[in-house]
């Protein structure tokens, strides 16, 4: 169980997050949506321990994650909104380096990299230099990096941005696969796509979760309409 409790965050004296709370169960995929500037990326960075919150707790399996960040980061996969990779490396070398730096034992690195590549559908890109990859391929490599050590929580920030339709569908199937072993929190503006494979929508507005809209078991069109309404209300 992954729980975010009363997170608050201030940036340049402006309250970006006031009181954000939600729970993500294992195997669940949660979409955090909101208008531009609502604080989605900030929330993801706080959850990824990149920004320390002003107050609030992040509980992973009931334990305070932020007070022991090294242990928490071992259970965490994070992918930023723009994949920042080492352009001089080949995909395989990059993933092996990332697995090693994340603390994976040497004899398991190759297996981990193979699994992640398989899930992210990039086995044929393994010997390609990263600088030769397209934006979509780079996102897949970044996702493979995020899921390398089979994290319990996967944070995907604006994952679908800039992807074409085919790639977005492929991304959906990848996330669904990953959700088998991790709770996934994903942010973005692509509600129609997200509605296909997320279980809940959390609408972030005014620094708080203003609405929680379940999508699992709901009519697809209704879900989209409700999310749109919630976002419109946010405006």
């Amino acid at each position: 169980m992954y729980e975010v409790r009363n997170i608050a965050f201030t940036y340049s004296r402006r309250k970006i997050l006031r009181d954000v709370s939600f729970v993500v169960s294992p195997g669940e995929t949660v979409a955090v949506v909101g208008n531009n500037g609502a604080g989605k990326t900030t929330l993801m960075k706080v959850l990824a321990t990149l920004y320390p919150p002003d107050s609030g707790l992040v509980l992973s399996d009931g334990q305070d994650a932020l007070s022991n960040p090294l242990k928490y980061r071992r259970q965490l996969g994070y992918m930023g909104e723009t994949p920042a990779l080492y352009e001089d490396m080949k995909v395989k070398a990059y993933l092996e380096y990332r697995a090693a730096i994340k603390g994976e034992v040497e004899k398991r690195i190759r297996r981990r990299v193979g699994e992640a590549a398989e899930i992210c559908q990039i086995p044929d890109l393994m010997s390609t230099p990263i600088r030769h990859l397209s934006a979509g391929q780079k996102k897949r490599v970044a996702l493979a990096d995020a899921i390398l050590l089979r994290p319990r929580v996967l944070l995907l920030d604006d994952f679908l941005a800039g992807l074409d339709r085919t790639m977005r569908e492929a991304a959906g199937s990848i996330v669904t696969t990953v959700a088998a072993f991790a709770g996934v929190i994903i942010t973005g503006h692509e509600i129609a796509d997200l509605a296909k494979w997320t279980t809940r929508f959390l609408v972030l507005s005014g620094g708080v979760i203003s609405s929680v809209i379940p999508s699992a078991g709901m009519d697809y069109a209704t879900t989209i309409k409700r999310v749109d309404n919630a976002l419109g209300g946010g405006r």
């Binding site: 990149l50 090294l70 965490l76 994070y78 930023g80 723009t82 994340k102 603390g103």
Partner: peptide, 14 residues
Amino acid sequence: RTGRIEQLLCTPVL
């Protein structure tokens, strides 16, 4: 400059 520092800072390394 490239933003890769985020990828480093969210790994379990000091």
